[in-house]
């Protein structure tokens, strides 16, 4: 059992937990993820590590409530226990010193997993330009943490309710035009699939190497089931053990988005069942 030490509510659907998990905290590195299961009947869901404290033995996760499990998770409080919490899983980010500045892009809840990578890149001596964005200002979080992790930080909102209006790709384009494409060594983007795909389409035009961190459906997370397979550069990779980070220009986004939607009707059903109080799975209709 893994204790939730702290809970922070960023918005009605975006929440942060600090979880006691010394084994994971001791060995995890930026870019890796965990799999958790709330209770005995629960499903295993992957979440990228947003922060960690080796001394305190804690892992920080930030998640958005999108289905039954994340919704139930969001209803848990500090002091509650998560049944299973395993990690670190996946390969860590490749951190090195680049000759030119690097850009890290975090969209929506993707800001959280970008954070430790930005921090490590800066520690490695890089000039790190951060771009973070959300649909609206009230869904934006960790601006302060990101400002500290990056050399410079640019913030945007889709609806212009905070700082400026525009997608992260709009800001990225301005940065590339401003600095010159040859002066950007790499772009790393984490966020919803359409956002990562848009970033990749943009950087491909400029020929800038781009790394993305994929979120695929997983069961075990150790390379055993192959549910998370994705085509990268024409070969099948497992996100859980070969990734989660890949060359974004080689990812078959079309296939990935289809595979991510496999269980959408079941997710809906689970949610309805969860919302039902009469026990019949009516979805709250009765």
């Amino acid at each position: 059992m893994f204790k939730i030490l702290e809970k922070q509510v960023f918005s009605p659907i975006i929440k942060q937990f600090v979880i006691e998990a010394p084994k994971v905290a001791k060995s995890c590195r930026a870019g890796q993820f965990v799999i958790l299961r709330i209770h005995e009947e629960g499903e295993r869901i992957p979440l990228t590590i947003a922060d960690f404290d080796r001394e305190k033995g804690t892992i920080t996760i930030v998640f958005q409530e999108v289905g039954k499990t994340t919704t139930q998770l969001g209803q848990m409080e500090a002091g509650d226990y998560i049944r299973d919490f395993v990690g670190p899983l996946g390969e860590p980010s490749h951190i090195k010193k680049f000759d030119h500045p690097v850009v890290v892009v975090g969209g929506g809840v993707g800001i959280a997993p970008v954070h430790p990578i930005a921090r490590e890149l800066k520690r490695a001596g890089n000039h790190v330009i951060g771009i973070i964005g959300a649909r609206s200002g009230d869904l934006l979080f960790w601006e302060d943490k990101m400002r500290e992790a990056c050399t410079e930080l640019l913030v945007t909102t889709d609806d212009g309710s905070y700082v400026r209006k525009g997608f992260v790709t709009d800001v990225l384009k301005e940065v590339i035009e401003d600095k010159g494409k040859e002066n950007i060594a790499q772009v790393l983007a984490i966020g919803p699939q359409p956002m990562m795909r848009a970033v990749c389409n943009l950087t491909k035009e400029y020929g800038i190497e781009t790394v993305v961190s994929l979120n695929a459906i997983m069961v075990d997370g150790t390379g055993m089931c192959g549910c998370c397979r994705v085509s990268v550069g024409g070969t099948t990779k497992f996100v859980c053990v070969d990734g989660p980070e890949f060359n974004g220009h080689e990812v078959d986004w079309h296939e990935l988005s289809r595979r991510s939607a496999i269980f959408r009707p079941e997710e809906q059903k689970a949610m309805e069942y969860h919302n039902c109080e009469c026990g019949s799975g009516c979805g709250g209709a009765k």
Binding site: E41, G42, K68, V219, M224, C225, F263, E266
Partner: peptide, 18 residues
């Protein structure tokens, strides 16, 4: 088999894994 045996997908939606 893992979905079915380990995660008991045959009990969905009482169990969460589909």
């Amino acid at each position: 088999l893992t979905r079915t045996n380990l995660m008991k997908a045959y009990m969905f939606p009482n169990w969460d894994t589909p």
